[in-house]
Design a protein around this nucleic acid. Structure first.
Lengths: 225, 225
DNA sequence: CGCTCTATTGATAAACCTCAAATACAGTGG
DNA sequence: CCACTGTATTTGAGGTTTATCAATAGAGCG
């Protein structure tokens, strides 16, 4: 692992302190599509994504998957570990090859004691995340599918989009099913919707890859249905 | 205001410290159905509910209301205040007469510096809340209305239920519309569903009041559809 | 080339919302 | 006590959205 970018989480630490913090954890490299932790397992480790991307998803009894969010490089996940005796509420799966640093509960609690700013930082991060989920909850309650799909594409785009001559391409492989799991619909509806938007020149797609050719149109669509 | 119960948030403080903390904030009594803070206003104060209950709701551009959660006595809300420069993402309205203690950002940040345990406590609280919203998000994605309505009734019941000879009565006034806003459906569907359940002997209701006469049946229903 | 996984498209059906109309209920002022 | 008013609730009919299912086509890989 080369020298890491210092992520937001540790923004108030010096370079030396940050290196110390990283050393107190352990590093792990995941091949694509491997499980980092599983919903229902006792939560004992939290992770910082160094590179790559994790997909956080919940599965219900019937086996329906719901994508909670994607976790990018520089972001922390499984902060739930810091609460007493909980299970992971979600499953984390690497999207591409992904490198993470992990700390067990003890180690991370120690860090927070040594660097009290970390606790405040995490609080801020978790609060933002809460707000985002609440917002998506509201969208799911009140908006129709196509709008939700549009929002999903825009979110994925903002998360990580590569500029290409054609438009902005979402930089992780996503299937129609993934988008459906994210937007709360079915892969069929997603497919139909994308086909319609392709005709209008808003998007282009190859297998598992989507390029948004007219982001502005999509934004307008989310605003005014 | 009489001597308050010391809420979970401050569980690690001594009685004296707690009194000091309360004194550093300001107290406010809200009549029923009054707005404490409004979605979109700059978030500058966070509140502890001393008695009564707050309804947190978001409204979208079309005016549809979505209930995010109910905040009971002993619970903190608007922790978002602690992040730099945000607006309240929700509106808080008192359900019955409600007493709150408020701290502005400065004051609360000071508290967290003086009593570092508070930051950790809040982190735990926010993490639990995040988990709960994620769970409801998943339910909304994957489950049909009736099941969601059942879950809503059970949540409201657990939140605050009075035992009566008939069963357990939800201790705050809730309209069909409220339940709909909570479960992500319409008041008509809620009404129809409750009528059906009344026939089966699962619930009883008067205007704005619901008694769950057979909680077990409802739980079974949420488990097995 | 054949195998597997993903995507498209159409037909059909179910779930749920929308709207309208009637009824019940609580509070208010005469 | 009663009529009056403004909500809350119930119920029905009808329509829309979206899911379900089935069948087919396309893409990547050994």
């Amino acid at each position: 692992m080369e020298t890491l970018q210092k992520p937001d989480l540790f923004n108030r630490l010096t370079k030396e302190q940050f290196n110390e913090v990283v050393k107190s954890g352990f590093s792990k490299t995941l091949p694509s599509k491997s499980i980092l932790f599983q919903q229902g397992d006792p939560a004992d480790t939290c992770f910082l994504v160094n590179s790559g991307c994790l997909k956080l998803a919940m599965v219900n009894e019937e086996g329906n998957e719901v994508i909670v969010r994607y976790v990018d490089a520089g972001e922390l996940t499984a902060a739930i570990t810091l609460i007493k005796d909980r299970d992971y509420p979600v499953t984390a799966e690497s999207v591409g090859e992904t490198e993470v640093t992990g700390w067990d509960k003890q180690a991370f609690m120690g860090l927070m004691r040594d660097f009290p700013d970390i606790a405040i930082n995490i609080l801020g991060i978790v609060l933002e995340r809460l707000e985002e989920v609440q917002h998506r909850y509201q969208e799911l309650c009140t908006e129709q599918v196509e709008r939700r799909i549009a929002r999903t594409l825009l979110r994925l785009m903002q998360r990580g989009g590569k500029k290409t001559p054609e438009g902005i391409e979402i930089d992780i492989p996503v299937t129609r099913q993934n988008i459906a799991d994210y937007a709360g619909t079915t892969l069929f509806t997603v497919s139909r919707t994308l086909s319609a938007w392709k005709k209008r020149g808003w998007v282009k797609s190859r297998r598992e890859h989507i390029t948004i050719t007219d982001p502005h149109a999509l934004v307008m669509f989310t605003d005014k249905g």
